[in-house]
Nucleic acid binder design. Sequence first.
DNA 1: CTGTATCCCCGGTGATACTG
DNA 2: CAGTATCACCGGGGATACAG
Lengths: 122, 122
Amino acid sequence: MTRKIYNCEHGCAVESTLQMISGRWKSVILYHLMFDGSLRYNELQKLIPGITRRMVSLQLKDLEKDGLIYRKVVQEKPLQVVYGMTDYGYSLKEIIELLYRWGEDFNHKNAGLLEEECLTCN
Amino acid sequence: MTRKIYNCEHGCAVESTLQMISGRWKSVILYHLMFDGSLRYNELQKLIPGITRRMVSLQLKDLEKDGLIYRKVVQEKPLQVVYGMTDYGYSLKEIIELLYRWGEDFNHKNAGLLEEECLTCN
DNA sequence: CTGTATCCCCGGTGATACTG
DNA sequence: CAGTATCACCGGGGATACAG
């Protein structure tokens, strides 16, 4: 995942941020680590229906590389790893919260649609 | 562009929002329409280096379909069209602003990197 | 338990030419 | 001026099997 630099006119900064939290599962992972607290690899996988081990790995690796989360080996044999937000990651808190609230509102407004299409609801 | 419904556990709402503003050029377009005011097709293209006419069309169409922007024909012969934010679109203002500020900070911190990789800067 | 290695597919996007 | 039509590419992500 090489960071892309877009056109650097106004608006570029918005893309820089989106780049960090875009990725099929990044925002959900961030949401969980932010509001559920630090979690283990397996816990994340259980919390996020549909995600594969591969994607847990890849997305976590990206987020870690960007300094938004940390990875800590708690114990070897059996291997135990914990992921959590860094301070830098927490600086995204307000953004994630706003995205969440806006989305809640959107989902509410489009509840009819969602019920029809959402396969994993309930 | 069919709206995708992800796993509807917590975090789902964040994805719903991101879905609306993700897309190669959507966030920049939103930024411009939000802070520069309504703009014509050509003006948008000029303001956004690198975007093709095709993408201007596609992204605008998506945004319009989602109710975030409106399209208004100002005059026929010669055809003149203006795009602008709807009230619903403006409800994203705080989000876009935060994304922008966070990204500015990020770009600043990584200025060295950016200078090397950014092809369209200055 | 916590990952990695491979293979493959599909949709988003770029390039380019055409249109009302 | 404001788009649309086609084609082609490529990289993000899914499925599955393997590994320390």
